[in-house]
Amino acid sequence: MTKVTMTVNGKSASGDVEGRTLLVEFLRENLGLTGTHVGCDTSQCGACVVHVDGEAVKACTMFAVEAQGAEVATIEGQAAPDGTLNTIQQAFQDHHGLQCGFCTPGMVMSAAALLKDNPKPTEAEIRHYLDGNICRCTGYHNIVKAIMAASGQDVSRIAAE
């Protein structure tokens, strides 16, 4: 067992882990942050996307010890302390960008990473950016729309209620 310490959503967190302990396991099992999900074992679905030192990574494809000393951000830290949703979360609700909610944490974290680098992405840029985030419920229409809306773009001409 190795002791790891990192900052998760602004708070110091530490625990004893094995070499093989994945970051996602540390978050879910050691810290009880079960918002980060595991949907595959080949690093493709993106349900586990978190930010490590500001960059989106798949928490299922990184060992916990590799995050030693890092700043980790998860879905649990996205809303304001009083529960107010952030712009992206609110856009997902406003535009029905989620159904079962399982891929949603990864989608929100990926969207946040995209908008940090590209504040006004085009539809095509959003779709390509989401290549590593699979959603089985929404057909992506409302996810793409929500991300466009979160970036301040007018989405009123995109079909749907």
Binding site: S43, Q44, G46, V52, K58, L114, L130, N133
Partner: peptide, 9 residues
Amino acid sequence: IGDPAVRNR
């Protein structure tokens, strides 16, 4: 290559 999260690792 891959997707953005993969490209970050």
